[in-house]
Amino acid sequence: MKKLASNIMILAFCCGMISSAFSADTICFESRKGSSEVTKRDLKPGLPNVKCSSKTGAVLWWGDPFDGTVPLGDMPLLGNIPPGKAVVKPRAEKLAILPMCAVACHNGVGPTFIPPTLPKDKKPKPLPTMEGLLPDAKNLQHGRGGLWCLDCHHTTQRNKLVNNFGDPVSFDQPQLLCGKCHGDKLRDWRDGIHGKRIGEWASTGKKRWFVCTECHNPHNVQDGARNRGFIQIEPETPPQLPRGMKNARHELLPGVSH
C-alpha cells in the first residue's frame, strides 16, 4: 500500500516536471538554479516582470521587485522595521514535494515515526524513496557528519522546519532555524549586510529579503568542489575583445618580473 502511494507520488511529480518542460513559458531562476523560479510575463505592456540572461537563464533585472511577495513573518529583534517594509517570496509553494510531505508518508502517525521509536543514532539511513525525490538526501553535506534530517525537519510535521525549542517553523522562515547555529550570519542578515535584498535602498524603505534557502542549498553547503558557501554556477559571457585582439591568451602568461 505504502509502495503504491510512493509510486503514485513519483509519477505525479514526474508528470508535473514534463508538463512544465513542454510549455512555451520562459522560466528563469533568481539566485541559484533549483531555487525560486519566475515565469517571464509582462506586468504591463512594455514592462516585463524580469529580464533573463540568454546564456544562463538567470534573472538579470526585475520590473517589480515586490511581485508575488508576502510580508516577512515575525522575527525576534526585528522590531525596528515598520510593518510591510520587509517582504519575502513564499518558498512553500515553490517546493515541489512539500504538499505531499505531511500527508503521503510522513504524516507523523505511522508506527516508525512516533518519537519513541526513532533510531538510536543520528546517522542518516538510506531511504530509496526519499533519495529518488530529493537527490541531495543521498549525500548530506552539512555539519560535517554531525547533523541528520530531524535536526532541521520537524519530527511529526514534515512540512515544517524546527526551531531551537522544537516548535515548528515555516519553510518561508528558514532563518529561524539556520540562526540556531549561524548566529553571526543571522545578525548580519537582519542588518542587511549578509545576503541579498531588492527594492528600495533607504534603510526605512520597502525591501524584498531573500531568505537563507533561496541562495544556499542547505543539503550540500559543503560541496568540496568549491571554496565558498555558494554553489558553483555558470558565469555570463566575458567582455568583447578590443579591436585587433585575436584572443586573450596573454592573460594566461605571467607578467615580466621587475
Binding site: 568542489a225 559571457t237 575583445l241 592573460e251 605571467p254 621587475h258
Partner: peptide, 22 residues
C-alpha cells in the same frame, strides 16, 4: 609569490563554472 610567477589578472576568464578554486 614574486611578480613574474603569478598571473597579473584576467578579464576574459571563461570556465564552465565559477567560483574556481584559488
Amino acid at each position: 609569490s614574486p611578480a613574474g610567477t603569478v598571473l597579473e589578472g584576467q578579464y576574459f576568464y571563461e570556465p564552465a563554472a565559477v567560483p574556481e578554486k584559488d
